[in-house]
């Protein structure tokens, strides 16, 4: 498909939609650091980042935002929401997507020259993720194949370190009715402007397995940054600080003050 002749965008633009943006800003913004835009995946909203990561990144001096794309939007609409939100920020933005949100970010990278990109536990190949879910939690996954909701188990999403009642509280907020296109396998666009891209995950993630992390990292020209012992939701685990600190350190190196 041509990235230049965009008949669909020209003739059938995505209409305006309700997207929710939550922001945590550093107390003093010297304008040196690019804004961060976190993109949640299927089944959770921006709240997954407001729990810990957003405020932490802000405390380290990064203007941080999380967008919840329009409810019920397809992949194209979600990527549109991400690009619209990024373009509305004052400076060239870093896109950080989690789970299927990483797939949305991968799509958005074909439309917006991000300052850098981070794909956290990325579900880029939906079929592999579906296989992993079927193996790990068949009872919760099979109904989703027939249009029902996807039910997760704590064991599937979180590492053993997270206290059971916290895991349960999170689980109650996570509910997904997967849309087919989020599980597509279509080619991802070439990122415009060639942003540095980092893949982060856990070898013990039961949603995105290690080979998928390697594949995703190889697609963007690198090796994944791994946090053993954690689950799929790196930002909700007890040791949430480790990965976000590592991400911010990497970003600091990739986006030197100009």
């Amino acid at each position: 498909m041509s990235e230049i002749l965009r008949f669909q965008d020209w003739s059938d633009p995505v209409p305006a939609g309700d997207r929710e943006v939550v922001s945590r800003l550093p107390e003093e913004d010297d304008g040196e650091r690019p804004p961060l835009l976190f993109v949640p995946g299927m089944g959770h909203g921006g709240w997954a980042f407001t729990e810990h990561w957003l405020a932490h990144a802000a405390s380290r001096g990064w203007p941080s935002h999380a967008v919840t794309p329009r409810p019920g939007g397809d992949l194209r609409a979600q990527a549109h929401d991400v690009v619209q939100t990024a373009a509305a920020l004052p400076r060239q933005t870093v896109l950080i997507g989690h789970g299927t949100g990483a797939r949305v970010v991968a799509r958005a990278l074909g439309r917006y020259p991000a300052r850098a990109a981070v794909l956290v536990s990325p579900v880029l190949d939906g079929w592999a993720a579906l296989g992993a879910a079927l193996r790990g939690n068949p009872a919760g996954t099979i109904p989703a194949l027939f249009g029902g909701p996807l039910r997760f188990s704590a064991k599937q999403l979180f590492g053993p370190g997270l206290p059971a009642e916290q895991a349960q509280a999170h689980l109650e907020r996570i509910g997904a009715r997967p849309r087919a296109e989020l599980f597509g396998r279509d080619a991802l666009p070439e990122p415009v402007g060639g942003p540095p891209t980092l893949v982060v995950g856990s070898p013990d993630d039961r949603v995105v397995r290690r080979p998928e992390l390697d594949k995703a990292a190889a697609r963007y020209g690198g090796a994944p940054l791994l946090f053993p012992g954690m689950g799929h939701y790196l930002m909700l685990e007890t040791s949430w600080q480790e990965p976000i600190d590592a991400i911010l350190d990497w970003l600091g190196k990739q986006t030197p003050a100009r």
Partner: peptide
């Protein structure tokens, strides 16, 4: 109209 006018990598606000 907007989609045929904006820069391809920096859309105008959809509102």
């Amino acid at each position: 109209s907007r989609p045929l006018t904006e820069f391809p990598d920096f859309p105008m606000p959809d509102t």
